Computed example of a mutant assay.
Amino acid sequence: MSAHPVPRSSWLFPASAVAFVAVTAALGIGFTPSVSGILFSVVLLAILFGTVFAAVHHAEVIAHKIGEPYGTLLLTLSVIIIEVAVIATIMIGEKSAPTLARDTVFAVVMIVCNGMVGLCILAGGLRYSEQEFQVSGAKIYLSVLIVLSTMTLILPNYTLTTPGPLFSALQLAFVSVITMILYGLFLYTQTVLHRDYFINDDEDDDGAPPTHSIKMNAILLIVALVSVVALAKSFSVVVDAGGAAIGAPAAFTGIVVALLVLMPEGVAAFSAARHNKLQKSINLSLGSALATISLTIPAVALVATLLGQPLVLGLPPSETTLLVMTFAISMLTFATGVTNILFGMVHMLVFAVFLLTVFAP
């Protein structure tokens, strides 16, 4: 069998990122509120998003070659490294951001469970009228996702050891360990114990096409991840400036970070739904939300502890209401194993309400 052609972007964007970091560091170029600053921002965002796509591509190729469960774990870790790097960089910056981790995780849940899921179901429903998926797999996703979201985003509002929507050091450590254990059990269930729950008989598990050797993909993956980490500081400055320019609230930064991390998986999920592979679309969507909560919260908790910064996790009442409504709708959407455009439209409208409450609370 002949090898598939290697996408040019898989090495072009990481190489461009390395060159961009080297040139801007050597010449002392950074963002400024000017025409040149706008050009800097455009180039930065194009290279950054392209490099994130490249990193996910190489992780998927390696995951396909090394098999499960190691492949899923590698792909998950690659995405989480990017997210934690961006969040930690912003936390270390001059402007305090104690709610950034909470805003990002909440944005991920809203984008995934309403935006991505709604768009995929709507696109598939418009093309095929109805699409089928495994109810057993969807129930596992939702059960773990509901528990993790409640523990990390709602429970801090009701603990008494510390005032405000905060966990104490002991509580934060305990919850961090619990989330990692629960995610580990989920991975074991998904990849070993009950793989059939997450695969439809009429969907081929074709994975990512082989390209370079695994060594070359590993090198390019490392280069891409390191490049994203190096670009994170400039990205945080641009996001802060953009948010200030449009008068956006603090939660805007969390939404941008969530979009940066979720975009590659979102594109893949939408494409799968368009090709009548809704099960794969659900795996990509809900799996990315699970990974974000399970691994981002413990990593950011460690960073906050080392920096001596508070980590606000509890959601305000309006966002808690949206979270509860999202899970209630999701339980109904994934209850029968069949979807149609109405389910997709409902999720899309809830996502629109989420965006409205961010900019007009």
Results as ranks from 00 to 15, higher is better:
residue 184 G to A: 13
residue 321 T to G: 15
residue 299 A to L: 15
residue 35 V to S: 07
residue 45 L to W: 11
residue 225 L to T: 13
residue 142 L to S: 08
residue 106 F to I: 05
residue 336 T to C: 09
residue 76 T to N: 12
residue 91 M to V: 05
residue 249 P to W: 12
residue 98 P to R: 10
residue 103 D to C: 02
residue 47 I to V: 15
residue 314 G to D: 14
residue 334 F to I: 00
residue 111 I to D: 02
residue 7 P to F: 08
residue 20 F to A: 14
residue 254 G to R: 00
residue 48 L to A: 15
residue 48 L to K: 14
residue 305 T to V: 05
residue 252 F to V: 03
residue 246 I to P: 08
residue 281 S to W: 05
residue 311 L to Y: 08
residue 358 V to N: 13
residue 315 L to F: 03
residue 144 V to Y: 14
residue 162 T to C: 06
residue 170 L to A: 10
residue 279 Q to W: 00
residue 329 I to S: 01
residue 255 I to T: 07
residue 22 A to T: 14
residue 78 S to D: 04
residue 171 Q to W: 12
residue 334 F to R: 00
residue 105 V to K: 02
residue 205 D to V: 10
residue 193 L to F: 11
residue 109 V to N: 01
residue 229 V to Q: 12
residue 181 I to R: 09
residue 329 I to Y: 06
residue 297 I to V: 15
residue 163 P to H: 05
residue 150 T to I: 15
residue 114 N to F: 02
residue 118 G to F: 00
residue 230 A to F: 07
residue 248 A to D: 11
residue 144 V to K: 06
residue 20 F to Q: 14
residue 247 G to V: 07
residue 7 P to C: 13
residue 104 T to P: 10
residue 66 I to G: 13
residue 242 G to W: 06
residue 59 A to G: 15
residue 40 F to T: 04
residue 260 L to K: 01
residue 270 F to S: 09
residue 44 L to M: 09
residue 301 A to H: 06
residue 93 G to R: 05
residue 273 A to I: 04
residue 283 N to A: 05
residue 116 M to W: 02
residue 209 P to E: 10
residue 60 E to R: 07
